[in-house]
Design a protein around this nucleic acid. Sequence first.
RNA 1: GGGGAGGUUCCAGAGCGGUCAAAUGGGACGGACUGUAAAUCCGUUGGCUCAGCCUUCGCAGGUUCGAAUCCUGCCCUCCCCA
Length: 422
Amino acid sequence: MSSAFEVLKERGFVSQVTNEEAVAQAFEDEIVTCYIGFDPTGQSLHVGNLVQIMMLAHVQRGGHRPIALVGGGTAMIPDPSGKDALRPQLSTEDIDQNILRIKKQLSSYLDFDGGHEGQAGRAGNEGRASMVNNADWLRTLNYITFLREIGEHFSVNRMLTAEAYRLRMETGLTFLEFNYQILQAYDFLMLFREYGCTMQFGGDDQWGNIVAGVDLIRRKERAAAQAITTPLLTLSDGKKMGKTAEGAVWLDPEMTSPYDFYQFWINVDDRDVEGLLGHFTFLPMEQVRELGALEGEKIRHAKSVLAFETTKITHGEEAASQAERGARSVFGGAQAGAEDVPTVEIDRERLEAGINVVDLFVEAELGKSKSEVRRLIEQGGASVNGERVAAIDRMLGTVDLDDEGVLLLRAGKKRFQRVKTG
RNA sequence: GGGGAGGUUCCAGAGCGGUCAAAUGGGACGGACUGUAAAUCCGUUGGCUCAGCCUUCGCAGGUUCGAAUCCUGCCCUCCCCA
């Protein structure tokens, strides 16, 4: 049986390691407590966070103890990186609210049961995941104490030679940004002290910050903490993982429906399928390789496995089957399809009175504006019940309903919406 | 604190008194071809009561028949000097 570390390596999660031998050994000999930091400025984590989440999940399956650290304290600091400068400052209530939601999302992947927060460090909770908020120590932090205890261990010269900061020296670096590294290092130290956490994971871009924590632990505690970073996952088309036209693919089913989540995976590039199966499913690697080796049209099977598995992990088996049925019915025959296709309701009276196609498409969110839908129709990209809409003044009425009182709208090749009278 | 440059539509980036809803590129979207893939080709890309009208070029005023383009003030960003 291979160790958790080997699993991570085999599945492509490992890019850089502080001390590979020591890490491998630790995963063999002991229950390792590992952590990853998550940012709670949003209401939901998204597919881009999934690499990290799955890493924790694999580690937990290997019998180790994952900690999801949310930056409730760091989130109070405004983001200095330009673009989001205008975003309203989040209140502590908002952040706490987000943290609650994030925990719920994470619990699809990690088993938090039994491990009460704050007590996870005690005996008897081996293998339980915990969620920790760095606000617990950051919000009450005393500046002078902090400088005296932590500040003395950081060399500005050294920090400035780091790749990440060297680049920022060109464009400007604020004191805030400069402090992120120190705070993140401090988080690691605190987790080491309170929870016996000796390992941190993160994306390759986090390497500098993570290593700073490893150093701090060595200096303060004379202990050897370790770190593993994951390669930044880029897709074959060069895009960042988890972004689509509509924006991020969220893990929260309210924000991205299981159907859309499923569709995201089924639409990935052929070339990425094997890697994604390794990262985002728990399927044995033999199977992953088999599926990845499929060629030509057959690779679609691999994609459907990928989509089903990932959706199952995130939203449960039932939601996954439903998304799969929906996809089949709609891409199979383009008939009104089963219940499982995304559906909107409309008052029967309105349909009886007759409703313009354009309006209905907008209402079904198949277009952001009427102009957009008109364009869609002019370009031949809209259809009702499988039939192309020829004119923008086409009226729809009850005659367009099938026996079950349903009609099917389609925008472009892939976007469907079932309209039901209510 | 002093000096300089600049803030344009999703992004990058032209425009510098009317011919500007605003070049070009990227992205995105639609069509053709396919396998709900990639590549390629073609088209579209502010809104609407759509051959017309309305709202956009950091914000607020002003000049003008007319401003993204000129003037004034403010906000913000970047660079150089202190």
